[in-house]
């Protein structure tokens, strides 16, 4: 198969034009079953020894070759070239969010910093069992979905929050955190990782995720980081860490729909930031006034749907009782 590999190159240490990001096209002839990585290695070996890329195992285990293929992060070794050719071209860029060292090689410092921030080791609180910890097969099987992570950085590359805010813990580290919050050996004797859930409920943690699904889509190992973040939101609310905008938003949203069948858009933001949070509420005033002038405010009187009693009964049956609020005075992570 003849194909053009269009690579975004950059050499920050060079002088002149090569210093800035620029595109270079490599026409190659590759086998029909060749991977994108095969094509890149062929270019490096035969055509241009200056093309920099990372790779090692070539079998989707080591996590070295994550890069953007046609705009989305993927492992080059797991992507069959002929499945991604668009009009004879495959577009290759370095992973996003992390700074480029050269061409397709990015600096992973940010990635590892975030992993370290979630204390990626078991932390048992309280009494240590006399013999070994006994964990059910079921619990470990569930965790294997997360421990499948190969730390390739694909999710971090395409995270829409990290793109605008480098302080966000990000999908890889948060999936790693779930590996512990869902481990029965972590946390207190009931397996509830109270300290972790407290810390994760802070700004830049679980509530900052936009639920955009990019990380779920690009993960080559099915770790589904966003789904783990959502599970931790539930764990945190259950553990009583609900005194933040995110948890209030989820609670108010669920309650609004549970009582009327539909969303009360006028009251939701007020309940999310907190009734008493005057500075935040004042911040919405210009937006509200602009909307009012244009005649596009949500209805003041929120109506119930037809047969709302049926919805309320569903809500009462399915909604668990809220946990008593937890008050924490200082961060367990310093």
């Amino acid at each position: 198969m003849d194909v053009t590999i269009r690579v975004k190159r950059q050499d920050p240490e060079a002088t002149g034009e090569r210093r800035l990001p620029h595109w270079q096209e490599y026409p190659v002839s590759i086998a029909d079953n060749a991977t994108v990585l095969d094509a890149l290695i062929q270019i490096r070996e035969d055509d241009d020894g200056t093309l920099a890329l990372r790779c090692s195992c070539r079998s989707a285990i080591c996590g070295s070759c994550a890069m953007r293929i046609n705009g989305h992060a993927a492992l080059a070794c797991k992507t069959i070239a002929n499945t991604v050719v668009q009009n004879g071209v495959i577009t290759i860029e370095p992973a996003g969010v992390m700074p480029v060292i050269k061409d397709l090689v990015v600096n992973f410092d940010l990635f590892w910093e975030k992993i370290k921030q979630v204390d990626p080791y078991l932390k048992h609180i309280g009494q240590v069992p006399e013999s070994e910890y006994v964990v059910s097969n079921e619990a470990m099987l569930h965790l294997s979905g997360v421990t499948a992570c190969i730390m390739c950085g694909a999710c971090v590359s395409d995270c829409t929050v990290l793109e605008v805010d480098p302080t966000f813990l990000g999908p890889a580290a948060l999936a790693k955190a779930y590996r512990f919050t869902a481990d029965p050996r972590d946390g207190d004797n009931q397996g509830v990782s109270t300290e972790r859930l407290w810390a994760l409920s802070e700004p830049s943690g679980i509530w900052d995720c936009t639920r955009c699904n990019e990380c779920v889509q690009v993960c080559p190992k099915g770790v589904a980081p966003m789904d783990r973040i959502m599970a931790m939101r539930e764990q945190a609310i259950q553990a009583g860490y609900a005194n933040n905008n995110g948890a209030r938003h989820t609670d108010a949203f669920t309650e609004s729909v549970g009582h009327s069948g539909r969303l009360d858009e006028l009251r939701l933001p007020i309940k999310s930031v907190g009734m008493m949070n005057l500075p935040a509420l004042m911040g919405y005033m210009p937006v509200a006034l602009r909307a009012l002038r244009r005649g596009k405010m949500p209805p003041i009187a929120h109506k119930n749907v037809e047969n709302v009693e049926a919805v309320r009964r569903l809500f009462q049956k399915m909604e668990p009782e809220p946990a008593p609020p937890q008050v924490s005075t200082n961060s367990p992570f310093g």
């Binding site: 639920r211 959502m230 939101r233 539930e234 609310i237 938003h249 989820t250 609670d251 949203f253 669920t254 729909v257 549970g258 069948g261 539909r262 969303l263 749907v305 037809e306 047969n307 709302v308 919805v311 569903l314 809500f315 399915m318 909604e319 668990p320």
Partner: peptide, 21 residues
Amino acid sequence: GWTCTGAGVIQEKNQLFGDTL
């Protein structure tokens, strides 16, 4: 009498309720 889908928000707290809606 259609209801809200849950917008992914209800699902993060109570998937069963959201899906039932």
